[in-house]
Nucleic acid binder design. Structure first.
Lengths: 394, 394
DNA sequence: GAACTTTTTCAAGTGGTCTTAATAACTTTT
DNA sequence: AAAAGTTATTAAGACCACTTGAAAAAGTTC
């Protein structure tokens, strides 16, 4: 469908089709009648739309439901393994490939370690191979691929879709989308890692049917993806959600961003490790952050008070920042993800209590603060979900 | 149009009509041809839509434009004084009535002082009289009234539209909408004061054609209305935008909300006056805040260093809070309104510099921080704009 | 003034949804 | 077991907004 502001019959059909399809996705036992009731469409129109969906194998008739005093309804479901969507998560140290089917089920996952940083060209080459390996292994027909989503740890220009800056990859002003689209011969969508995570929570995670929420990712830094009215919110230039730079401590460390006491300096993995190291005697130039954090976590679990204190401070800072977000944003949920689930048990209660204490009572009574069920996979999954979202009109 | 998720021909027509109407509103010299080009509609469809709009007197043919080598285009404009919208701003001390015509021009304004606080019932009675006085004075036909918008200094339930709490009015759990709708026999819309201000900036102020922005109101407290993707953002429970409770000072005053160092305690009118009073010898139980602030401002303008310091501290705190908002929201503009324009010259540069210094460079390079052209009228105007928004499909 | 452009309108046709009526399948009543 | 009442689905024709293509109207250029 061409990009136009106004609608015509095709647009109408497309739109209604998406709505019907989405109702079938989000509700377990939908019949034609039930769809008609929910959509406001006539039984006829509903039947016609269902027919085309069946024809194209987006859905299938799964059997009969319980009668409510008359003919039994025919239950409709998305047809598993009918259409597929591919997601990539590009990171400093790995490229992660997942394939979902139309129902959102993961049918393929493969993590490729990349010992050295890849250039954009090398990345495209690698994605090319990963793509066709997956597609061939799963024996997916070309016309059954809905598209490819790519998660990038960086900022992109909202218009041109060029990657403006991806510090961890060492890229700046790179066009990944067009060459990749040419190489794979499919529609490619690019999005920021945090946005992808949020998208994942919204589709298959804890924020299904949640319209307004924030997904905060704790990694080497801290970033967030935000949903507003059921859609990803990007902001004016596409950089919304930089919650890592909310200032939570007047007399805290100076952050590389120029501000003081940024959340990131206290509650990110790097921040916590740095704090743990400051007390230590071993001065290492190149610390393995991942390993160091693992050790910190072990020590905390064994009851080491200094380590526990670091986690508690991080929790309180997170609580503070979250209180700000609750007041300004009034979200329904706040999901903490990526590395966070690994140590959620240590800190979640403190975060909740701190946020509850500092935020206004009305919005904070209605918000849930939870730990993500996905961990580090959320970005790749979220990337794969982008093409699905388009199909379902989201 | 009934509330339904799917579309039919009526929906399509309504939608396309709104889009065309909005293009005529936002562009000076629109002809049928130009509309067709911009919307993607066929010339025929555009012509038909224009015909109905002319028939209903929403628009008029204003004359001929310049030829580009052929027949001259007929220029279309909104027809002034054809349809009207009424807005009320209910405050502790006054009820403000404005009437706009379809073009957004103010055709009536009247401020009614209310010496004592009014109950909800008294308010309805007062609005009833104010409404018919305005309508009769302007000689407006019933079918030319698009609706009534009401601005409330409080929180409302997003579902039931009941007013949950309006501290300044002394109301809690009040239904204003239904009785008022019955009394006036027109569609009534209720909204929060800050949301109304934002709506005003978006329609006739500095945020025309701006999709994502925040309108921060400085009054006795500090609140904000936010726009996301061209629409008011209310949050999950309708209380988004409480930026007055962003904490900007770890060791600041305890706020009534329970948090410490809330922006409101430093940069609101009450906050600034309280600070000025703390140094003073005169201990007054009932201070006239408005008058006290006027004095503070006078002293600052005369160069009193203590007073100037209070404004500078407020400015820096605002800059801090705004930096947070820039990082998380990435808005295109931030408008400071209500009392702010009265002293903008004293503080705006400090606010800009502080925000610029503390926020991330990419989003802060693209944001404009400005002072509202409306002052205290913005809420009443914004309220009157709600029915207009509906007409134009916004 | 003839040829060409641009803008607007007209007439016929397409492609959606809606209403009405019929049919199919099941439950409850007799 | 048959009849009556419910519920789900399908079929046929009406309706309506948009599209296409041609014609008309108005202006410009040579």
């Amino acid at each position: 469908m061409k990009d136009r502001r106004t609608g015509n019959n095709q647009y109408l059909k497309e739109m209604n089709k998406s709505i019907v399809l989405d109702l079938i996705r989000t509700n377990k036992d939908m019949s034609r009648k039930f769809l008609a009731d929910r959509t406001g469409l006539s039984a006829t129109a509903t039947g016609a739309i269902v027919k085309t969906l069946l024809n194209d194998e987006y859905i299938q008739e799964i059997g009969e439901g319980v009668s409510s005093g008359g003919r039994k309804p025919v239950i409709l479901r998305l047809k598993p393994r009918s259409y597929y969507s591919v997601g990539f998560d590009i990171d400093e140290r790995y490229i992660y490939t997942v394939v979902l089917d139309i129902t959102g089920e993961v049918v393929y996952r493969k993590k490729l370690e990349t010992p050295k940083r890849l250039t954009a060209d090398e990345t495209i080459e690698t994605l090319y191979q990963a793509y066709f390996q997956a597609v061939n292994e799963l024996v997916i027909r070309d016309d059954r691929i809905l598209g490819v989503g790519v998660s990038i740890p960086g900022m992109m220009d909202i218009e041109t879709k060029r990657i403006i800056l991806a510090p961890n990859l060492g890229w700046s002003d790179v066009d990944l989308l067009n060459p990749l689209e040419e190489a794979l011969d499919t529609t490619v969508y690019l999005d920021n890692e945090a946005m992808c995570s949020a998208s994942c929570e919204n589709w298959i995670g804890l924020c299904r049917n949640v319209e307004d929420f924030i997904c905060i990712n704790i990694e080497s830094g801290i970033g967030a993806g935000m949903f507003v009215r059921g859609k990803i919110y990007r902001g004016f230039t596409g950089s919304a959600g930089e919650v890592g730079h909310i200032s939570v401590d007047d007399k805290g460390l100076v952050c590389k961003c120029g501000n003081v006491g940024c959340l990131e300096t206290i509650a990110s993995i790097n921040g916590m490790v740095a704090k743990a190291m400051r007390g230590s005697t071993s001065i290492q130039n190149e610390i393995n952050v991942e390993k160091a954090f693992e050790e910190l976590l072990q020590k905390a679990r064994r009851g080491d008070s200094r380590s526990l204190e670091i986690f508690q401070e991080a929790a309180e800072s997170l609580g503070k920042a979250i209180a700000n977000l609750i007041n300004t944003f009034n979200p329904q949920k706040i999901v903490l993800g990526k590395k966070f689930p690994d140590y959620a048990d240590l800190v979640l209660e403190t975060i909740r209590k701190t946020a509850q204490r500092l935020a206004l009572s009305y919005p904070s009574r209605h918000v849930e603060i939870v730990s993500s069920p996905f961990g580090e996979d959320s970005s790749a999954l979220g990337a794969a979900i982008i093409p699905l979202r388009k199909l379902f009109g989201k």
